[in-house]
Simulated assay, not measured.
Amino acid sequence: MRLTDFWARLEQAFGLGYAGSIAADQVLTQLGGRTIEQALADGEPTAAVWRAVCAAYPDRVPPRLR
Rank of each mutant, 00 (worst) to 15 (best):
D5H: 10
W50V: 02
M1T: 11
Q38L: 09
D59Q: 12
A56I: 00
W7E: 09
L28K: 05
V61G: 11
A47H: 15
Y57H: 12
Y57R: 08
L28H: 02
Q30R: 07
Y18P: 00
L65S: 09
L3G: 05
G20N: 03
A47N: 12
E11Q: 15
V53S: 04
T4Q: 11
L16F: 15
C54T: 11
L40E: 02
P58M: 00
T35P: 04
R64W: 12
R2K: 14
R34H: 08
A55S: 11
A52I: 01
R66N: 08
T35E: 09
E44D: 01
D42N: 10
G43E: 06
A19Q: 05
A19F: 03
Q12M: 12
L16C: 10
L16H: 14
A19V: 03
A23W: 01
G20Y: 01
G43V: 13
A19W: 00
M1Y: 13
L65P: 03
L65K: 07
T46K: 07
I22W: 03
P62S: 14
G17W: 07
Q30I: 00
L65A: 12
V53T: 06
I22Y: 04
A19C: 02
A56H: 06
R9H: 09
L16S: 13
V27C: 07
L10P: 01
T29G: 05
Y18E: 04
L40D: 01
D59W: 04
Q12H: 10
V61F: 02
A41Q: 12
L10T: 14
R51E: 08
G43K: 13
T35S: 12
A41I: 14
V49R: 01
R51L: 03
R60Y: 07
R64H: 11
G33Q: 09
E44T: 09
Q26G: 00
Q38V: 08
T29E: 03
C54Y: 03
A13K: 10
V49K: 02
Y57K: 08
V49H: 01
R9S: 06
P62M: 12
E37K: 03
L65E: 07
Y18Q: 10
L40N: 02
E44K: 11
Q26T: 14
P58N: 06
A23F: 04
R34K: 12
L3D: 07
I36K: 00
G20D: 01
A47K: 15
A39Q: 05
D59V: 06
Q12Y: 09
D59R: 05
D42Q: 12
L10H: 08
R64K: 14
R2I: 06
A52N: 02
V61Q: 08
I36Q: 02
V49E: 00
A39C: 12
R9L: 05
A56T: 08
A39K: 10
F14Y: 02
D25C: 10
Q26K: 10
A8Q: 15
Q12G: 00
R64G: 00
